[in-house]
Nucleic acid binder design. Sequence first.
DNA 1: TCACTATATTGCTAAGCAGTGATATAGTCA
DNA 2: TGACTATATCACTGCTTAGCAATATAGTGA
Lengths: 113, 113
Amino acid sequence: MKKSPAHRPLEPAQLAAVADLFSVLSEPSRLRILQFLQRGPATVTQIVEGLHLKQANVSKQLGILTTARVVERQQQGNFARYSIAMPLVFDLCALVCKSVADLAARHAKALAP
Amino acid sequence: MKKSPAHRPLEPAQLAAVADLFSVLSEPSRLRILQFLQRGPATVTQIVEGLHLKQANVSKQLGILTTARVVERQQQGNFARYSIAMPLVFDLCALVCKSVADLAARHAKALAP
DNA sequence: TCACTATATTGCTAAGCAGTGATATAGTCA
DNA sequence: TGACTATATCACTGCTTAGCAATATAGTGA
């Protein structure tokens, strides 16, 4: 299957899908959870203790991340083990970090030329 | 394949900056405006007519994009000419599109193996 | 000056959502 | 069985924001 080569406007459904993924990544708490999982799979309690978040909140955010298929859930006895299912998100974050750093640098230069 | 250097957790400020940029990119109307501008700089009216959006809304979204330094504004007489200031956003969208397509493919395969 | 155009802003409504405490569900072990 | 643990869900509050109509601002040309 061949896909759009370069600059074709996205169809509405694609556009919505892209916006949805960005939306999932637009909450600091979810980004923190993803960073935590980057070191390896973890249970809800491990995340709660590692990030000092409330359990209800972590479960909720993990639900959102799971629905978006950014993480995946594996039941292990009494535990739920979550892991990264879309490593691409770290590429995205790295790109954004770079641009954020560039912005900050440009901004600093603009303030003190 | 180059491996990214040991992933250190982002500091809160960086985290917030990343989340903010993702948030800016999480609205379909803003993505549509960015796509429109990908073909070249445009005025507010051109965007309004090209995308069939309300003028007040376009001005508002352009303001948000400008604050985030994703686009930049150039006053030309009575007009405001907007252009892309952060071409990286198209790299981000391309990556996301790819992952969205992958997801759809995997999903389709899961439904009809 | 006035009329006209392009853009920005204001005030509003409705919807969405993060975070929380309480509670429900489900698994484990005695 | 019952006590305990891990996780999910519910009900709610407060905050944010997209979209809109109306209005304000600013530039142009007469």
